[in-house]
Design a protein around this nucleic acid. Structure first.
Lengths: 341, 341
DNA sequence: CCGCGTCGTGTTATCGTTATCATCACGGCG
DNA sequence: CGCCGTGATGATAACGATAACACGACGCGG
């Protein structure tokens, strides 16, 4: 029964058409494309010529359906705009591209129910792998990926209860290390600013790290020196102003979220507070800009690129059935000391 | 003939299984999911119950193949890391998500041959639309999308020779307007820095705009005051230093690329050059940070979010066959004056 | 000189949906 | 009272590829 051919100018060329022109069976065309070695040189030549001549573009939907394999990987981040993720995404996409895999990207906005829906959508698309930046998920989401049997990589934090594979660094340890570093530099009233810890597991891990460092240093945590804010430059500035109202003032502030430290550093300049003499500033993510500011800003260097590459590599291995056995990869972090502390 | 079921724990549930359990035909299940109105309330209830019970997840690969429609849109940007694109991507993804469409994202790295390959890959995936940020393409790429009949939206610049639909602002006009604005502010030796103009059509349009402004102002362009650099903060700094060696010095510099102005502004601070007294600085993209710096930086505000939303909206209309007839949408730009000029 | 592994290719069934048309029960209306 | 539109459902044939097996030709060893 013929079906309506809705798409306007689309010249629909099938493998059969190529086969007819090359005077072989469709199966041979299929092989010529996927396993060229299994086809004689002469036949291959004829087929490639035919493909060129008729303008054939393989239909991967059909291919994936028949072979039960797809060359698409799904990736979900809390926010595409966050430059922190951008580099990881770039690295992931790059590594996947080499294996002709593509990336379906979506944004969960820190909402685990939204994440669940996106995971469902990805499973419907039969992606062959999923990369997540959150480490907490709805029960339904967990069941979904379990039943689908899709390999999943979590990259936001080392998780206690991984879905499958984890490639990350420890937010807890990183925050702890930075806090201890500040103490070692002589700062005693160390303020801490993080993003809202509610639905953001990374933020709360960082806060835990800060508190744990203080405890190990036998410094009593001061609630007044701990703040949470929304994301953004302006919020960093706001948090700074609040903290500087506390008496006695903090002598250092550790900004544990995205661009907060940058907003704060600018405000210091505006207020005429000297950094680091009047106030030391430390940041979490080592954004490029930190090493260009005046003064340059101390921060944690996170293995953003490495996380992306590693995630892609492991995923590809799993997809190709070569189970590396790796369940958790801790890529660590570095503290980069600069003028601000 | 039974086929090997490679995927490990994947419980493969088909529509048929749901149908059997709900005691209806698969077709009714299909309808219950896509056109609920066409199924009686009672039947629908049974079907949803069955879906829940057996844990059915529709296979969109099969669905798309059969219906010749997909809910995936491809998007290609020169660089994912570029924050300029991030906001547009976010807006596009958001608008598409509302219609249950997803975004396949890839990076061309300013290489039109790479772009061509990506377009081919997207067509193979049978995406139902493509969003491109470049406006120059290989002939093969043009043929590819033409034959595939896929709607394409270009967003990088208003193009003279659009592939299909253009949603953007004019880089030429924007650069021209900013240059004229600087002149109006009293600056007479206006330097210009852009990214390499070779494969980057936007960069060369901006340069044309700068030159055109000078010409209209009857100011002779000075080759020494015009530079191109690689992207990045350090490059902006480098360009600044080069330009400040020219004698007589420029009294203003217009940085027409990504984060160049930011790097330069920091270097001014470091060198003790007062902005804007010793040197005025203007930037192209209105990144958030510009309004937080000290001094705040004048820039062009580009409709990044609007471009993304509009692109998605138009694409969806085209996909749904409601041709709006819009071929080019100029979303304009604003000059935001701040302390640096 | 025959059996058998290998190479290149074709045949057939299938992947899991959806489009189209057929069917059937029902009810209003002339 | 029978005709016919309407609403709900089903049967069947695609969609465009790939997996698995079949098959003939060929070369090699015993």
């Amino acid at each position: 029964m013929p079906r309506s051919n809705e798409r306007s100018g689309a010249q629909r060329v099938r493998m059969t058409d190529v086969a007819r022109r090359a005077e072989v069976s469709p199966m041979t065309v299929s092989r010529a494309l996927r396993e060229p070695d299994k086809v004689s040189a002469e036949t291959r030549r004829k087929i490639l010529e035919a493909i060129e001549a008729v303008g054939y573009v393989p239909n991967r939907l059909a291919g994936s359906l028949a072979s039960n394999r797809s060359n698409v990987v799904g990736l979900i981040v809390p926010s595409i705009k966050n430059s922190l993720f951008a580099e990881t995404i770039q690295a992931t996409a790059g590594a996947l591209a080499e294996a002709s895999f593509h990336l379906l990207i979506a944004e969960s906005g820190h909402d685990i129910v939204a994440e669940e829906k996106l995971i469902a959508a990805f499973v419907e698309q039969r992606v062959s792998g999923i990369v997540l930046h959150n480490t907490t998920h709805t029960e339904r989401a967990r069941a979904l990926v379990r039943n689908a049997g899709v390999p999943v990589i979590e990259t936001g934090d080392l998780s206690r209860d991984p879905l499958d594979i984890v490639v990350s660094y420890s937010n807890f340890e990183a925050a702890k290390a930075m806090t201890r570093y500040l103490f070692r530099r002589g700062y005693r009233r160390i303020g801490f600013v993080s993003l809202e810890t509610g639905s953001n597991d990374r933020a709360s891990e960082r806060r835990r790290g800060y508190l744990s460092a203080l405890e190990s240093l036998e410094v009593e945590a001061e609630p007044l020196l701990i703040r949470t804010t929304p994301p953004g430059l302006a919020a960093g500035r706001g948090a700074l102003l609040e903290l500087m109202k506390v008496s006695p003032r903090p002598d250092a502030i550790f900004f544990a979220g995205d661009v907060l430290a940058i907003g704060a550093a600018f405000e210091c300049q505006r207020q005429g507070w000297r950094v680091p003499q009047d106030l030391a500033i430390a940041s979490f993510d080592d954004l490029d800009i930190l090493q260009h500011m005046v003064p340059t800003v101390t921060s944690l260097r996170l293995p953003r690129r490495e996380i992306g590459e590693f995630a892609a590599t492991i995923l590809l291995q799993r997809i190709q059935g070569l189970d590396s056995g790796i369940v958790e990869k801790d890529l660590g972090f570095d503290i980069v000391q600069r003028e601000s502390t």
